[in-house]
Design a protein around this nucleic acid. Sequence first.
DNA 1: GCCGTAGTACGTTGTCTGTCAAACTACGAT
DNA 2: ATCGTAGTTTGACAGACAACGTACTACGGC
Lengths: 119, 119
Amino acid sequence: MVTRLGDEAAAGRELAHPARSEIRLEQVLHALADPMRLAVVRALAAASEQLACSAIELPVSKSTSTHHFRVLRESGVIRQDYRGTAKMTCLRREDLDARFPGLLDSVLAAAAGQENAGR
Amino acid sequence: MVTRLGDEAAAGRELAHPARSEIRLEQVLHALADPMRLAVVRALAAASEQLACSAIELPVSKSTSTHHFRVLRESGVIRQDYRGTAKMTCLRREDLDARFPGLLDSVLAAAAGQENAGR
DNA sequence: GCCGTAGTACGTTGTCTGTCAAACTACGAT
DNA sequence: ATCGTAGTTTGACAGACAACGTACTACGGC
């Protein structure tokens, strides 16, 4: 059957992101509460660059990865856009810092501290 | 049938709390991600005193309240102990600040900001 | 001793979440 | 045009979660 394209593609498949003022604290906390997603956020924070999805090794299947990236995007934690065949991902640092000052940094520090200090 | 008591009561029913070093970031974030529990934490932070469970009005049944308080306690966010017929509850500020510096404050500030600023 | 109040435990129900496999779409290179 | 690579979509499934009602336990006062 036909390509079923044309919905909103045309210029290259835009992805929906919440506006800065639409970001909800509960959703951000929920997004960060999953170990897999927290690992993604830590990797993005460490890189401070745009990364392809595939650049972040997750021990799960592709479809599960897609799911986690979607949760992060819809909660406003990351931004994604297509760049050719790859999908580039970056943290929405500015937006998060503006809306919830200090939150992201303290979570990242906490994650790092917890891992190093161990028990 | 018999009282079935005596397990660990005797001195007045102690409750299990995780040690400071046992507190896990993911569990804390998960505990705070629920609107009901976040409201409890905000109330406790505002009071900066011990409160009885019943002093925090939640629009849910008693058993659901018990559930939320247990999640908060088992994740290390609050401390509870019996005082006669009431169960007193307080935030574990020191422990949280020591383990995850700045986290609690930024979450509380974010919650307050989100509520005031609205959309 | 008996009752009321405060909270717990248990069993249930409906929803959400994390995971996967398999089939599919889109883009770039050959 | 064909192929491989990157990621999506769908459907399924098990486990977790929030909420409830009811029955229960514990403590303090009458």
